[in-house]
Design a protein around this nucleic acid. Structure first.
Lengths: 318, 318
DNA sequence: TCAACTAGAGAAAAGCTTTTCTCAAAAATT
DNA sequence: AATTTTTGAGAAAAGCTTTTCTCTAGTTGA
């Protein structure tokens, strides 16, 4: 039995007797034969391997993205190198070089905010690069969540519940996401209340509540928070003041970070950016590029989703 | 110029004139030549690639371990496939098969508790397997944190601060880690107070405080918690009751999960399991095995470390 | 001046698959 | 029965490096 015949039998290519083909397959199964992906890759220029580059050390955003990528690609036999670079250009280069040496089929760059680049040059690489939840190079394919739509979802939900004096306590104005969310808030629910910019910390959530409740006059009946950590602190601060959530004030978070949103009392109604779906899209896109299919460049915005828990009142159906 | 001469020049092997060697190197640098790792791997049976298998979807434990592995191995040119399998044996097999096809140099299995196996058979694999923060097969190399020592660290710290009535609020007794920590607590500080087993949730932390403060008589002057989430809830519950932390009661957590420990008010003094160091050791060990060096099998226990913040009083120097 | 070495460079094989080409034998056609 | 066609299988090359072996030309010593 020649090697080439065996190869053809296993790949269902070439022409040969059914009996021979079956015999080869059985024998291969018997000895537990596994084709060497290295040899295959050497020949086909496909390694069924991609690299995921990120500077999100905690994995807050990258892990869901990664889960999506893996979910989409595992069926295609693709494995993922995860490379965490801590805003260190040298480390970034080392990892990218290692990935290129290993002939990854493509690279997905990810991060922790959509208006910052990774500290590494990914232009003119011999493999396709796509960006997910990080700023992409001009002319590249970039996936990100629709902050405006997500914030609108929150604002509309609060209004649908009858809330009229809605405050917005959010992160630093330097973030594009913050500005987008604030814009949606102002367009839909910003009736006179100024947006309160701060930091992404619980401390800021406490502070903000203190500020809101220190002034005389009507208090907000809802607070839309820039992320779940702020929302959690807001809920805690309100409770400490004897303000009931959700009876007196509804609170909405952003991110749907289970670990925070579900542990808050009451659990947070919050906006989910669908990072897993984003990862899936990114994975399928990089695969398409790796296979030579052409993909329209540009920024693809994926819709957010409102996860209804108990911090607003209302129920999933409204 | 022949290919073999070039190869020898670049690898500093063979004998040839210095001038020739330099010329080759310069030319290689000029055209940006990168040796193909696939071809190299085909020949040497080393791919400089390892797989990290885990069922810890949130990455709470796996990400620090991964960071350690990467840190230790990136200098050796090793890249890491991260495969998250959600307690799904079929998915596990798919990932392991994909890794074997790609001829990883080794596999590190990790998880979210040290007394559970991953739902996938890693025995009799053609590559070395080592276990980090998950239960290993008999005769394997396993790394884990020293729960007893870590808990002892906490207990001794509290005693050193003059605390005498120390309570222990922890997770489910079914966890080996819980039992180990409770043992250390009882050996060192369990003067009559029963260990309070519960769940790994903030709700349980609140409950436990309610229980402790509902009985008449002397209250604890310190609470050693089984993880940071419980500790956080304990601190919150105490504050809500008007009990001052750390003046009236000292609280110690476990895990040093920054996201929780640092956001708690006051920030938590807590036990760090040094998962990054654990990852480093695991990485170096799997590399050693891949290189054919022999490694003593058994369970390697790495010491924990106390991270002093403000929930106990005291200062890093005591 | 000739023999024996040595230095430097190239040729070839190995590692594992897939694919294309070739070839022999069997089947079908005239 | 002879020729063409089809079928099944093997040989060889390609993909990229490294390593071992071979060979030529130049050098050294007698």
């Amino acid at each position: 039995m020649s090697i080439s015949t065996a190869s053809k039998a296993l790949n269902n290519t070439g022409r040969m007797g059914d009996e021979t083909r079956e015999r080869v397959k059985r024998a291969a199964a018997d000895i537990g034969f596994r084709p060497n992906a290295l040899a295959k890759g050497l020949l086909s220029n496909r390694t069924f391997t991609i690299g995921l580059l990120t500077n999100d050390t905690y994995g807050r955003f990258t892990l869901p993205v990664m889960a999506g990528i893996t979910e989409a690609l595992v069926d295609h036999g693709v494995s993922v190198f995860l490379c965490t670079i801590e805003d260190d250009p040298a480390l970034g280069k080392v990892h990218v070089d290692a990935m290129l040496d290993k002939h990854v089929d493509g690279i997905i760059a990810s991060g922790k905010r959509i208006d910052r680049r990774l500290p590494v040059d990914l232009s003119n690489l011999p493999v396709p690069v796509i960006y997910a939840f990080t700023e992409g190079a001009p002319g590249s394919v970039t996936f990100c969540a629709d902050d405006y739509q997500g914030a609108a979802l929150a604002a509309e939900w609060l209004q649908g519940l009858g809330r009229r004096r809605i405050a917005h306590v959010t992160g630093p104005e330097s973030f594009v996401s913050v500005r987008e969310r604030a814009k949606a808030y102002r367009d839909l629910a910003g009736d006179g209340l100024p947006v309160m910019y701060g930091t992404w910390s619980e401390a800021w959530g406490h502070d903000a509540v203190a500020q809101l409740w220190s002034v005389t006059g009507a208090k907000p009946d809802a607070i839309f928070c820039g992320n779940d950590q702020i929302a959690r602190a807001v809920v805690d601060a309100l409770r400490e003041r004897g303000v009931r959530v959700p009876e007196d004030v509804s609170v909405v978070g952003f991110d749907n970070w289970e670990i925070v949103a579900a542990q808050t009392r009451p659990p947070l109604t919050t906006v989910d950016m669908n990072l897993k779906a984003l990862g899936r899209e990114a994975g399928l896109t990089v695969l398409a590029l790796a296979e030579g299919r052409s993909v329209e460049p540009g920024i693809r915005t994926l819709p957010c989703e409102l996860i209804v828990r108990q911090s607003c009142g209302g129920s999933p159906g409204r």
